[in-house]
């Protein structure tokens, strides 16, 4: 039997679920085709197929789907509604499946995550492979193994991230969604530039999610966006050990525009807010980052 090819767009979900997908599907006769790091062509195609009101990250996702159309048998798009009552996700994560289904004529593999309705990732992934003819027992075991491997990998990343807090350099907490921070076109250049200024970057997403999720209550009791809670929960965890905070979001992100604005009023440390849209000039961003770092280093004027 030829390998089944499942396409995975390198955007949005990818940055949260890439490891579980990889370790899980590796156990079957399935090949994952991952789209390349975002480049201008991918972004331009995304913009072409999306409506104006979508955020840059969503447009980017659509570009990645377009890239995969003729390269795989299926495209994997989960539909994520919530992780419980006070852990909702951005509406894009809920709507992507239907949006893509409407834009492109392609076969989509789908599972739901809706804990309010008792629909879990485990059930979803197992259903996908049993539909391909694998036994339920084998799939269950594969999922269990995959989860174990993911945990090992994450623990290491988190350990490295926490170790950076002991660095002698100026330390900056970078808050943003992983699909923006690690995207080749959206966040990579910015991170490169921040590092160029002799700083240590601590990433908001590389902490234990259950810890940051709970800690976010210190800043606000009523927030219910899962991903934002996990991002800002890193603030009370490390605020005493860092020199400044940089927020990165894409235009127009609705959870970010609410949550980040709320944070600005509660922070003790200096912050910089960068909102990225599909402009392609770095000049303005460089000016802002450089002057922000000058400020938190504090010494420039009296040098």
């Amino acid at each position: 039997m030829a390998k089944i090819k499942i396409g995975i767009p390198r955007s949005l979900f990818y940055y949260y679920y890439k490891d579980i997908w990889k370790y899980f599907f590796d156990e079957f006769n399935i090949e994952l085709i991952i789209s390349p790091p975002t480049n201008k062509t991918i972004m331009e195609n995304g913009i072409k197929f999306s409506i104006d009101e979508m955020c840059v990250s969503m447009k980017n996702y659509i570009g990645h789907v377009y890239y995969l159309l003729d390269k795989c048998d299926y495209i994997l798009i989960p539909r994520i509604s919530n992780y419980g009552n006070d852990n909702q996700t951005c509406t894009n994560f809920l709507a992507t499946y239907d949006i893509i289904n409407n834009i492109f004529d392609t076969k989509i593999l789908n599972y739901n995550i809706n804990l309010e309705n008792n629909e879990t990732e485990e059930k979803g992934l197992i259903k996908i492979v049993t539909d391909f003819g694998y036994s339920k027992e084998y799939a269950k075991k594969a999922y269990k193994n995959a989860i174990k491997k993911v945990k090992q990998k994450n623990d290491k990343l988190i350990k490295d991230n926490i170790k950076k807090l002991d660095s002698e350099k100026t330390k900056i907490l970078l808050i943003g969604h992983p699909y923006n921070l690690y995207d080749n076109l959206i966040g990579k250049e910015i991170i490169k530039y921040i590092e160029l200024n002799d700083t240590e970057i601590i990433y908001s997403d590389l902490f234990h999610k259950d810890i940051t999720n709970t800690l976010s209550k210190k800043l606000s009791y009523s927030l219910y966006f899962k991903y934002n809670k996990e991002n800002i929960g890193s603030i009370p965890l490390v605020e005493d050990k860092i020199d400044g905070i940089i927020f990165i979001s894409t235009f127009p992100c609705s959870p970010d525009s609410l949550v980040n604005e709320l944070m600005f009023r509660k922070l003790k440390k200096p912050y910089l807010n960068l909102i990225i849209d599909d402009l392609n000039s770095m000049t303005g961003i460089e000016t802002r980052i450089e002057s922000f770092i000058d400020i938190i280093k504090g010494g420039v004027i009296n040098e």
Partner: peptide, 12 residues
């Protein structure tokens, strides 16, 4: 006290 504490720049 002679140290920049905040700034803002026009955006687009």
């Amino acid at each position: 006290n002679g140290i920049i504490t905040d700034y803002a720049m026009n955006t687009l």
